[in-house]
């Protein structure tokens, strides 16, 4: 009886899980099909494996290859992720370890910006960046990252830092460490899990970001993968299915890889402070 119940739960979990990831499996195999094959059959596996989708899709339709868009995306994402992780750590340290005046109010303000819809402030931000001459560059992503723009990551690191015993700091003070050195030499090495989790989250968010890239980036030479995909879709969806599928698969690859390498941090990370998505 017990065995039966257990195996029925397994069966249910497996069937549901399969349905859930089937679209991902489908697009993966679809990217190796010919266009006729995609349209003509519901079989999962391609009738013949072709790399045409990848070859032609990568070459792109205009003057830029998809490789160019990938490089652009890395140019935007890597500084954003590094700066966000670092700045949110420093800010979290300030909130977690010091009781300065107005600490409570500022902390509450910081948390409340989590609920502030970005759509509401996008227009003045756009005008601000326009006046600064930052439009069509990656500065609207990189500079805010330096300013600890995402309270989500601050909160995440804050929660982690609060879990580290204060005695560590106190004994370091006895040894003559100043507060900066406590952060860099004592707490930072212990905070690796929180830093990795924040970086992974931020990477996925930045990599998939569409709305703000669409608004801030206008010239095709600066396009990220998201914009490149959308352009491809708009130009010729009817004729080049396998190319679009192939490039979609490639665009999902970095996130998938990151997820599998860091999943331990990941699921715990959201459980502790999760808000996104």
């Amino acid at each position: 009886m017990r065995f039966l119940r257990k195996s029925s739960v397994y069966a249910l979990l497996s069937v549901l899980g399969f349905i859930l990831v089937y679209p991902l499996i489908w697009i993966f195999f679809g990217s190796f099909k010919t266009n006729n094959d995609i349209l003509g059959s519901i079989k999962l596996l391609p009738a013949e494996f072709v790399l045409e989708g990848y070859r032609l899709g990568w070459a792109g339709s205009g003057q830029f290859t998809f490789g160019h868009f990938f490089l652009n995306t890395f140019q935007m994402v890597i500084p954003t992720v590094l700066l966000t992780t670092f700045s949110s750590y420093v800010i979290a340290y300030g909130f977690a370890r010091f009781r300065f005046p107005m600490h409570k109010i500022l902390f509450a303000l910081m948390l409340s910006t989590l609920m502030l819809p970005p759509t509401v402030v996008i227009i003045p931000r756009y005008i601000l960046f326009n006046n600064l001459g930052w439009l069509d560059t990656y500065l609207p992503f990189v500079v805010p990252a330096l300013l600890g723009f995402s309270p989500f990551y601050i909160f995440m690191q804050y929660q982690f830092l609060r879990g580290l015993p204060k005695e560590l700091d106190e004994s370091a003070v006895m040894d003559g460490c100043n507060s900066f050195k406590i952060m860099t030499h004592i707490l930072l090495p212990l905070s690796k899990p929180a830093l990795v989790a924040a970086a992974v989250f931020n990477f996925m968010w930045a990599w998939n970001e569409f709305f703000s890239v669409l608004i801030y980036i206008s010239s095709v030479s600066k396009y990220t993968v998201s914009l490149g995909l959308r352009m491809m879709m708009d130009i010729d969806a009817a004729t080049t299915w396998n190319q679009i599928m192939a490039m979609s698969v490639l665009s999902m690859l970095p996130c998938a890889l990151f997820f599998f390498f860091a999943q331990k941090f990941f699921v715990e990370g959201i459980a502790k402070s999760g808000i996104k998505g």
């Binding site: 549901l16 899980g17 859930l20 990831v21 679209p23 991902l24 697009i27 996925m204 990599w207 998939n208 970001e209 569409f210 993968v225 998201s226 914009l227 995909l229 959308r230 879709m233 679009i244 599928m245 979609s248 698969v249 665009s251 999902m252 996130c255 998938a256 990151f258 997820f259 990941f266 699921v267 996104k276 998505g277």
Partner: peptide, 16 residues
């Protein structure tokens, strides 16, 4: 079960 969510808001998923 979490896997689809790592592509939240991505264009690739919308295309899919």
């Amino acid at each position: 079960y979490y896997l689809p969510s790592i592509f939240a808001g991505s264009v690739a998923v919308a295309i899919l």
